[in-house]
Structures are given as C-alpha cells and as structure tokens.
Design a protein around this nucleic acid. Sequence first.
DNA 1: TATGAATGAGTTTTCATTCAT
DNA 2: AATGAATGAAAACTCATTCAT
Lengths: 206, 206, 206, 206
Amino acid sequence: MSPRTPAQFEKLRTRRREQILKVAAEIFIQKGYHAANVSDVAQKAGVSQGTIYHYFPDKENLFLAVYESWEIRNLQSELRDALENAATPTEQLGLLAQMVAKRMEQAKDILPAYTEFWSHIHRNKAIKIGFQNMFKDMRGILARIIRNGIDKNEFVNTEPMTMAAILIAVFDGLILQWIADPKQVKWENIADTLTQVILTGLSANK
Amino acid sequence: MSPRTPAQFEKLRTRRREQILKVAAEIFIQKGYHAANVSDVAQKAGVSQGTIYHYFPDKENLFLAVYESWEIRNLQSELRDALENAATPTEQLGLLAQMVAKRMEQAKDILPAYTEFWSHIHRNKAIKIGFQNMFKDMRGILARIIRNGIDKNEFVNTEPMTMAAILIAVFDGLILQWIADPKQVKWENIADTLTQVILTGLSANK
Amino acid sequence: MSPRTPAQFEKLRTRRREQILKVAAEIFIQKGYHAANVSDVAQKAGVSQGTIYHYFPDKENLFLAVYESWEIRNLQSELRDALENAATPTEQLGLLAQMVAKRMEQAKDILPAYTEFWSHIHRNKAIKIGFQNMFKDMRGILARIIRNGIDKNEFVNTEPMTMAAILIAVFDGLILQWIADPKQVKWENIADTLTQVILTGLSANK
Amino acid sequence: MSPRTPAQFEKLRTRRREQILKVAAEIFIQKGYHAANVSDVAQKAGVSQGTIYHYFPDKENLFLAVYESWEIRNLQSELRDALENAATPTEQLGLLAQMVAKRMEQAKDILPAYTEFWSHIHRNKAIKIGFQNMFKDMRGILARIIRNGIDKNEFVNTEPMTMAAILIAVFDGLILQWIADPKQVKWENIADTLTQVILTGLSANK
DNA sequence: TATGAATGAGTTTTCATTCAT
DNA sequence: AATGAATGAAAACTCATTCAT
C-alpha cells in the first residue's frame, strides 16, 4: 500500500542515523558537548536541524548515542581475546600490554574523546554507569588472570583486584599524558617497560 | 570620605577575590564550566554579578584562576619532599607511593575537579600548557629517582622517562576509577600493592 | 488493478474522514488547538501525517470541521421539539428547562469543548459566525415563545429578546461553572429552581 | 554602598513589571496565549526579551500574572458593597443587577479576556482554582442574600445555592453572547428585565 | 567601587507542511 | 492515495557581559 516498503524506510533511517552519529561524534569530541551546536551537526551532516530531532529526541540523547557507539569500540573484546591466545598468565599479561599499547597507537583519533566522556561522569548517569561497568568488567578479566597466576605460582601473592585496577589505570593515565602532549608518550616503549617492571619488578636484587 | 588606607583597600580586594575564587571553584567543579553561571557564583559569593567583573575580566579567566589555584595544591611539592626525606631510590619510590595514596584519601573533595580540568586540555591553551608542565615536572622528578636507582644498581635498566610516565599514569588512572565508583578503589591497598609490584615485580621466580 | 468501484472508494474516504475527525475532536478538546499536534491526531487515528492532509487542507480546517460537527449536535433541534410537544408557552418554557438540564447531564463529555470553541470566537471568523447564528436562532425561538406567552396573557410584558438572551445565558453560564467545578453544579436542581423562579418569580408577595 | 538604593531598585522593578504586565495583557487577550509571542510583548513594551525573563520566569507565569491582575478587578468587591448599600434582600438583588449590568457596560475592554481565561481552565491549575474560588465566593454572597430573603419571607423557598449559581450564570452567559455579537446584547435592558423576572416572575397570574 | 537591571545574540526545540516514492 | 522522512521557520529561553547610577 505504501510505495516505499517499511523495510526501505528502515534502511533509510539506519543510514541517516549513522550519518548523523558519525558527524556528531566528530563535533562533540572536537568542541565538547556544550560548545557543539546541534546546528553545527546538522550542517556538517548535510541535513536540517529538524532532521536531527527526527532521529534523536534531544541533544543529550544524541551525545549519549555517540558515547554508546564509542563505548562499543573499547577494549574488552580485545582483553578477552588475549586471555585465549596465550597459554600462561605471564604470557597473557605480556600479550595484553602489547595489544593495548599497539591499539593506542592506532586509535589516536578516538583518544581525545576520553576526556570529553570522562568529564560527563559526574553529570550523566548513563555515562557514569557505562564507565563503572567498563571498569568492573576489565578489572574482573585482569583479576582472573592474576589470580590464576598466583594459583599457578607464577605470580607473587597480591590483591588481584587492586593489581587489576593498577594495570588499567596505567593505560588511562597514559592516555591523559598523551592527550596533554602526544610527543611525550611513546606507546611503543610502554609495553616493554611495563612488561618488564610488572612481571619482574624494578628491583635488581633478586 | 573614607578613612581606609590604600593598604586596607588592597587587603579588602584580596579577600574578596579569594572569596569569589573559592565559591567559583565549588560551582565550576560541581556543575562544570558551561553549566556554571556567573550569576550563580555571584549569588553564592554574596556579591553582585558586576562585582565579579571587577575582579576577573571574564568567565574564562575566572575559570583559569580557579584552575591555577587548584594546580598549586597539586603533588609536585610533595614529590620533592619525598626525594629529600628518603635515603635510597628504593625508599624514595616506596615513600612516594605511600604519600600519594594517603594524599588521595584526604583530597577526596578535589578529585572530582580532575575530569573537569582534563576536559579543557583540548580547548584551553593555558590549561594544556599547565598539564604539560605538570606532567613534565613530575616525570622529570621521578625519572631522576629512577635513573639514580639504576646508577646505584638498585633498579634494573629501564627507560627512566617511560617508567616515570607509567608511575604517574597509575595515579591519574586510579583517580578516574575512583571518580567512576569510589567504593571500588581502596587507596589504602594501592601503596602496598604498587610498592610490592613495582619494586619486586609480580613474578615469583626470582 | 483494484476491483473497488468508485462508490466503494467514496465510502472508504468518508469512513476515513470520520475516523480522523473523531480522533481530532478528542485531541483538540483535550489539549486545545495549539497544543494539539497534527502528528498526534495522525498517530491516534492510525494514519500517517500525510494522510491527514489528503482529507483536510490544513490544521485550521481540520479544527473547523471538528467545530462544525460539534455544532450540529447542539440544542436547537431540541428546542424546536419542545415548542411542538407542549401546549402553552408556560409549559413550553418548563419543558425546555427540563430538557436542557437533562441534556447537560448526559452530554458531560462534550461540555469541555465549549471553552475551547468559545476562545476561538475572537480569532476565527467561521466560528464567530457559527456562534452568532446559533445564539440568534436560539434567541429567536425563545423570543417567539415568550412573545406568544405575553400575547396570551400568560406572561408579563417583558422585552422578549432580552428575556430570551437571559434564558440562554443561564445555561452557558452554568456550563462554565460546571467546567470549573463539576461537583458544584447540580443539573437536576437547576430545572426546578429555574422554572419556579422564571415563571413565578422569587417574590413571595403575590 | 550602592549608588542606587535598594528602594530605588525596588521602585524601578515595580514600574517595569507593571509596564510589561499591561502590554502582556493586551497582547494575550488580543491574540490568545499561544499566538502571542514573548517577543511581541517585549517589543511593544519597549524592552528586550531578556528583560521579560528578568521579571517573569517564563511565558506561562507571565500569563498567570496577567490573569491574576485581571482577577483582582472582578466583581466580588462590588457585590459586597451592594450588600451593604441596600436595606432589604429584594433591594439588594435589584441593586446588584443594576450594578453588574452597568459594570459590564463600562468594562467592555476586559470582557474579551473572559474567553481566553476560560479556555485555560482545563489546562492550568492556578486558573482553575482561581475560577473555582471566584464562583464559590460569589455563590456564597448571593446565597446569603437569598437565604436572608427567604427567612424574612421576602422570597419564596428555593435552594439558595442553586439560585445563586443561576444568577451568576446569567451574567457569564451574557458576556459570551456579547463577545459573539456585541450589538445583540443590550446591557441597559438586562438589569430591568432581570429584576422584573427574577423578583416577580414571568407569570402574570398572581 | 558596587550594584543589578538590561541587553541581545545565540541555542535548543517544535511542528505544520511538503514531497519523493 | 498513502507514507513518513525531511524541512525550515518560528518560538521560548539562557546568560555572559555592559553600563547607568
């Protein structure tokens, strides 16, 4: 009865939504939530402002959608892979450090988004929960490796959760230093140094 | 008409300025730069909006002044103290970890400010430079300890700067996790675990 | 391709039109002209927005069509009936009061529409004329009864038109009080009191 | 300390507020709530839009303020006066009819406001309550006169509240007819006819 | 110097209407 | 005829900043 089938409409909607979302991500990350205008997004996406509101109820939800699409691209899947592609906990941690560092090197364009989203932790419940879950998941994954290593006598006896938190912190903290001054953070050195120190310690007297 | 001496005036101005700054800090950190209104600050500081503009040229400079006053309270001085109050590089690092962790415990009220300032790194040159210098200073201080430790054969041979960056990163990253979910970060465990691992390594086979 | 005859098409159109009109009436009365959205009407009527515009040139004409369908259901026909079903002017007025009061009791769901349409008297010519004609007709009908009563010496000599206007006013005014506070207007008492007072007067000294 | 004293500011505020309110009343009544724009009000009042929002939190509250200032000018005080300036209930009612009719004649410019405010009864709680209270008060005042008349044997025994409601309704209903077609309502005839009929009844057979 | 009224540019949001399919 | 995506003009509201007093 309709000349465009519902499926056609659906496809149209999906395409447009993604088009808007992509542009919105760029602008939000470049300018920050408040300085970014819906009209900027509309213009750069080549649609009218009304169209934006056809796809997203308001600016905040557009931002949230950007956050969600960004969140998906995060590291958890990679962490899980590392678990499976290495035999011993020691190797697992080493591989992990390498992977994450390499990932950072590649993903330079999305790193600036971190500070933007971080700054919404206080103000946006969904984002807060997103970060809480992400951290929780990642700590869980790492803590399991560490506990496993302790059980197998590969690692000394530390609090696995605290240790996991520290490992995650290293990368987030480095992202911050990289954002402040990209030249000063050499991801290619990080993995090695980190592996060396974490696994064998700084101490030379063994 | 007024019996006030110029010096008294000056003192009055200073006091008022600090009064405004204190309130501005609270509001900026609580609401974020954009959501914070000059009128809010004025009201909470008990002055008129116009008065704010007698003390600060505009909102951005008010924010910058808040940033600067916040920056001062940061860790560098403490780091320097640690250098002097410990004999060996090993002890220095251990003391450092303890001090910083204890400091975090106390400074819970200013931690939320981190994300706000971080998010301005991209957008504000002064803040970017502030962070760059702070990171540079801290890396320098830590790198010197590490290099010293290597020279004294207390530490294995690592890239001091990279190692320094990692150490700093740990704390910034933990601040982030703490902000996302304070209950999940136990500062009191951090120092021990960190000292243990950094100094002796995770590896049990020594 | 379609086996539908023109007549069937016509019936379909009529049905759809009425369907839209019914829903539009509900929404316009519930929300008022401006707060009611064409998209609301479309959604609730189960058609697309575009379809509304196949049946009505624009929102104003849709509203007008609602007004017209509402106007038709009004009292004039009943008034005419009352004229025929009572013998004397006195009885006619009495019957009238009873009928109208009973009608109000039943028509509670359309009473809220009154204020909405009233408020368009200033702004919409068609509605203004509609009300003018309705009032004129009703005053005419009542004035004829009254004049008849005066001629037959059943009534004292009053200005029939003014008296007619007053009688009509009573009901409109009561509708308003009912809308403001339904519990405070007891339609079942109205007819009696009205008949008693209008016909015999409040004065006890006769 | 301030060159303008608080009292001066207060006077300024009051004056401006009234200036805005007056213009807003005109525009709201002329165009209706929705069709009236805040920018129209600002322009006609010779201030900026921002100034409007300096004095009223939003459009709705501006409208409400208009309603309240309009409500004050209503009839209750006059009704009370009538109570005191007439000796017997019969005279009281007669005087009342005269006063109200005369008032209508004078207040032609505010009558169009009625339909606008009426139409907000459903949508605005404050206005609903305003009307409820106004009707309640007026019914109370009239019912007391009527009850008094019954007690003194001046009036026949009717339900005072119902009778009061009817009397009030007459005027509201006539306002409506007047709004629809001013030429058709002759306020100068109303009082006489009303007094005659209400007090002595239409019936000629006494 | 302090005040707070006033500004007006800038932003988000809404929605009747159009139109390609 | 029917669909619903797209439009864009219009509207409410905000707020940093100015300035007369």
